[in-house]
């Protein structure tokens, strides 16, 4: 099939970017979206033009590297699917496609469609862990965890850190990402000793990194390739209020 692609090109963080239009004549419906970009790049190189830079690695929807906004939707139109698993059969012959990077001041564009998501790492560094020294752990079955809690913790822990929640949020808020980690650990008995300090610290870092606030639009939940629920945001709010009260 034939497609018209409008791709965001930007040489570096400090330079201005613009859309560049390319017509692709023979796109196979069996290609993934990223394979379609590969094909574009092969053609660009052959014609002596620099290829489009985009992040990708595992191409099976788990590493969280890839992510572009396709016609206004992070990771494209298919539910619970990352851009690498989105296939071109989701599009029609003759369609126009706009491809943009995640837009947020906490995710500055590195080049073309690549953004710098180290702000997510810094949120985790500020408390997204359970302090347990290697070798100091008790036998694993000495800490029983109710299955219901373990399952809920897992649902939150499924986050791949791709940043689609931030990209989708009209406020560029990172509440879903932060809440997922806070809830994963807060739901488990192992996470209790640091529970309050963790939420206070992670929320502070989240704010300092320049993300927006949550106004409960639910766009993040819709865009999340792992379908993480905004109920975790509600849960984090509660944790945060309790922790603030106890701290004072």
């Amino acid at each position: 099939m034939k497609l018209t692609l409008h791709v965001w090109r930007q040489k570096s963080t400090s330079q201005k970017g613009a859309f560049e239009t390319h017509v692709m004549d023979s796109v196979s419906p069996d290609m993934s979206f990223l394979e379609m970009l590969d094909e574009l790049n092969q053609a660009l190189i052959t014609n002596g033009k620099e290829p489009v830079a985009f992040d990708h690695d595992c191409r099976e929807g788990i590493c969280g590297s890839c992510g572009v906004v396709i016609n206004g939707r992070p990771h494209g139109p298919q539910r619970a699917t990352t851009a690498c698993q989105l296939h071109m059969r989701s599009y029609q012959d003759g369609q126009e496609i706009w491809v943009e990077p995640w837009r947020a001041s906490a995710f500055p564009v590195v080049k073309d469609l690549m953004v710098d998501r180290t702000s997510f790492d810094r949120i985790i560094q500020s408390g997204g862990f359970i302090s347990v020294r290697t070798g100091s752990a008790p036998d694993a079955n000495e800490i029983p965890v109710p299955k219901v809690d373990a399952d809920k913790a897992f649902d939150a822990a499924a986050c791949i850190g791709c940043g689609a929640c931030v990209a989708a949020c009209p406020n560029a808020s990172a509440m879903l990402f932060t809440a997922a980690k806070v809830s994963h650990m807060g739901l488990l008995p192992q996470g209790q000793p640091e529970r309050e300090q963790r939420v206070l610290s992670m929320v502070s870092t989240m704010d300092e990194e320049g993300f927006g606030s949550c106004t409960n639009h639910k766009e993040c939940q819709e865009a999340c390739p792992k379908e993480i629920s905004i109920d975790y945001i509600s849960r984090m709010n509660r944790d945060y209020v309790c922790a603030s009260k106890n701290k004072g």
Binding site: F129, V132, T134, P146, A150, Q190
Partner: peptide, 16 residues
Amino acid sequence: DQAAAQGVPFAREYGG
């Protein structure tokens, strides 16, 4: 042991 203490959400039985 180490992973469980770190909060890795391994599958559990109903008894925890």
